[in-house]
Design a binder for these strands. Structure first.
Lengths: 332, 332
DNA sequence: CTGAAAGCGCTTACAG
DNA sequence: CTGAAAGCGCTTACAG
């Protein structure tokens, strides 16, 4: 794997290991002559310094960890892409874990990452990863940045999306289009992410004198299939509904499909707005109007924050907010 | 980060470091009494062995590297998910890199991974990563497994998909449906992946006495937008075409959209078949008929192969083939 | 059954 | 400007 070591280079270049180390790290004063000789030897031998040996002594590995519930979820795969790119640009490589939304898995991943000596961790925690559950780990590890929702701990910082605002804007837009019977395809219960969306939905309704009816909300997992099923149910029970605001695009896409099956035209008979703006939102027809969350910003800011925290370990940082804005397409 | 070390445990448990190491690794004979004492101390102190220290001495890190062109591409994100899961199940953690289909980036990623001391690398190489370009690296690193297409080197093994067969089956199905003027939305040129699909397409045509016309193929990047544009062009120039076979689902989804805009009904006026079976294939309407590639199999088999190669470093392994089968939905 | 020593491949004070 | 020594946190022969 790494058959050629620093010692080999030193021997061949007739210098000490110390000197090779200095030219490799570009530090200290070295005669041009010996630097050239060492450089040439490194080149000739194809020497590459071992990051693991270096990590052992310097106590940093130039790696970070990323844990998401599911990398195959288009929302997270875009975030992951942005994170990896930002990390790479800063000289860091990234470990990644899927947690399947299990907080036990998340804790395991966190510990694994720490065992590998990563310099920081970015995690999109599941609702189950409460402050109490992560505390024992966070007390010993620093820094951690949380994606999309916050966990209270001095070693943890967050990059959040303007969810409530985005939700409110979306529903206000619907109201502005003349809709006054607006249902909501909600997501997994007991989830702050859902809570904020419901808040925004409710605020928009209240602000326009419209009633907030819990029987116009439908829950369940945030999948395409569920969106389709929930829409069928909701529209069967409350045929007067003319618009649907969804927890995410997967659900909204399912709603579009349901409307097609039900013979309801979108957006004429039923307007639909999603949340996230995944690529597929633009692949369906009618194209999905949605609340676009800046996923690249999420990943890039998370990495930037890790760097800041590394440089100021004792400082505590306020959350960063990334925009979530209405993106009009065809479904509403 | 890792404030408590093996030495701390040893001191507190009144044993030597050697003994702690033995209980941690469950090796050798130890009195139940001392084992219990050490275990209790480990627990009490919250000790976790440093993987980087261990990696330095054992020369293996229990990590692997994964490099794909773009993790946000739904095909690769599913493969990545399966790979990570299989790795985890085998006790390995994974580093991941995006290469943006640049072979220079791929080479950089490969070297970075080796510097980190990964035990193996799984890569979905871009067409630019030729055998000659990877050879200097592969000569020194082992094992490497290549996803979806092969590179000839004794340290490299591959897990491939039955592309040609899948393509042929798809086109034969179209012919069976009565189509005899079938165009193809091809992908990036100079790509073996494209070559195999074209072969399958051509074989099906020839086998049924149909003409293979290069002016019925359209090239370019494999994106939704391109699929839409290419379809518009192709159908404008050759309105007699009644069916389209696409290089991948993104292109096929673009084709469905184009048909909608052109007023061509799918599948009645124009049947469409994609390739890959990404989740969005089932979210559009009409749902996309496609050649399903076993992406989970790809990831799982790649990891399995890495393990085999690790256990038999001198052995050379034949490629593994993963199925690519027609999945009928609505678009054809 | 358990301990003291050497060493994995580097970097970091310390000398010279 | 450059070298010899110590040490990062483990594991691996070698003794006892």
């Amino acid at each position: 794997m790494h058959p050629v070591t620093m010692r080999d280079v030193a021997k061949k270049a007739l210098v000490s290991v110390r000197t090779v180390s200095r030219v490799v790290n570009g530090q200290g004063e070295i005669t041009q002559a010996t630097r050239d000789r060492v450089t040439a030897t490194i080149e000739a031998l194809g020497y590459r310094p071992s990051k693991v040996a270096r990590a052992l002594v310097t106590q940093h590995s130039d790696t970070i960890g990323l844990v998401v519930s599911d990398i195959a979820n288009p929302f997270f795969s875009e975030v992951a892409r942005a994170t990896q790119q930002a990390a790479r640009a800063a000289g860091y490589d990234v470990f990644f874990f899927n947690s399947d939304s299990s907080w036990e898995e998340e804790l395991r991943a966190l510990h694994s990452l720490a065992d590998h000596g990563v310099d920081g961790i970015i995690i999109a925690p599941s609702p189950g990863l409460t402050a109490e559950r992560i505390r024992p780990f966070a007390d010993r590890f620093h820094p951690i940045v949380t994606l999309v929702y916050p966990i209270a701990h001095s070693h943890i910082s967050s990059v959040l999306a303007e969810i409530r605002k985005g939700a409110r804007t979306a529903v206000e837009y619907l109201i502005g289009q003349g809709h006054n019977r607006i249902g909501m395809l909600a997501g997994p219960a007991a989830n702050p992410l859902l809570h904020w969306r419901v808040q925004g939905y409710r605020e928009a309704l209240m602000g326009h004198g419209l009633e907030f009816r819990t029987d116009w909300l439908s829950g369940g997992p945030a999948t395409f299939e569920r969106g389709r099923a929930s829409t069928c149910d909701l529209l069967a029970q409350h045929p007067q509904i003319t618009a649907l605001f969804a927890y995410n695009d997967l659900l909204a896409l399912g709603a579009i499909r349901a409307c097609k099956e039900l013979g309801r035209r979108v957006p004429d008979d039923c307007a639909i707005i999603g949340f996230d703006d995944i690529p597929a939102a633009d692949w369906v027809s009618p194209a999905l109007t949605t609340v676009r969350v800046d996923k690249r910003g999420l990943g890039a800011q998370a990495m930037a924050r890790i760097l800041e925290m590394l440089h100021a370990p004792d400082q505590t940082f306020p959350p960063i907010f990334v925009p979530a804005e209405l993106l009009r397409r065809e479904s509403a």
